[in-house]
């Protein structure tokens, strides 16, 4: 597909919902999700892939939504933090984050939960090395990592 026009017709799914929208080709997925769709659970922080706050899952893989241009999402399946809970019922990762005190200021939390989900979706029982490889791109500035590790490890036990 090629187009010379200045806008791009984006078709993708977000949390299972089909989306069709006209976007500027140099708009990032982060901006699109937050400021066009109002899905503000995905956070922007460093805007250079160093902190992981903006992590979403695209076709099963974790990506930094701040470094993805919208047209790259053509036909892709995007999952964000808003798609995790089932009505009032928290996703197991959300529940464990809450129980372990893994969310203090909470700003890194959506990105961490999405990174953890991508990791466990691919590998429900990661070794320590695989755990770090999956999670190391996400920075937490206020809670420290102990409670986050505990939350994800206890989610592993209930992973289906």
């Amino acid at each position: 597909m090629a187009t010379d026009s200045t806008t791009w017709q984006l078709r993708c799914t977000v949390n299972g919902r089909p989306i069709e929208a006209e976007v500027e080709p140099d708009e990032t997925l982060l901006f699109f999700l937050r400021d066009k769709l109002g899905l503000t659970g995905t956070k922007g922080s460093c805007l250079e892939g160093e902190c992981g706050s903006c992590t979403v899952i695209v076709d099963g893989r974790a990506l930094n939504s701040c470094l993805v241009l919208c047209p790259q999402m053509q036909g892709r399946r995007i999952e964000t933090i808003e798609g995790l809970a089932n009505g009032d019922k928290l996703h197991v990762l959300q529940d464990k984050f809450l129980a372990s005190g893994a969310a203090q200021c909470g700003y890194c939390t959506p990105g961490l939960i999405m990174a953890a989900k991508a990791l466990l979706d691919q590998n429900p029982n990661p070794t320590e090395q695989e755990f770090f490889e999956g999670m190391e791109g996400n920075i937490c500035r206020c809670t420290g990592y102990a409670a986050i590790c505990e939350a994800i490890r206890s989610a592993v036990q209930q992973w289906k």
Binding site: I81, Q94, L98
Partner: peptide, 15 residues
């Protein structure tokens, strides 16, 4: 559990 915990893990807390 944190009072503001649910909205933070759900991503609905408004910064």
């Amino acid at each position: 559990r944190r009072i503001d915990g649910p909205e933070k893990v759900l991503g609905t807390a408004l910064y």
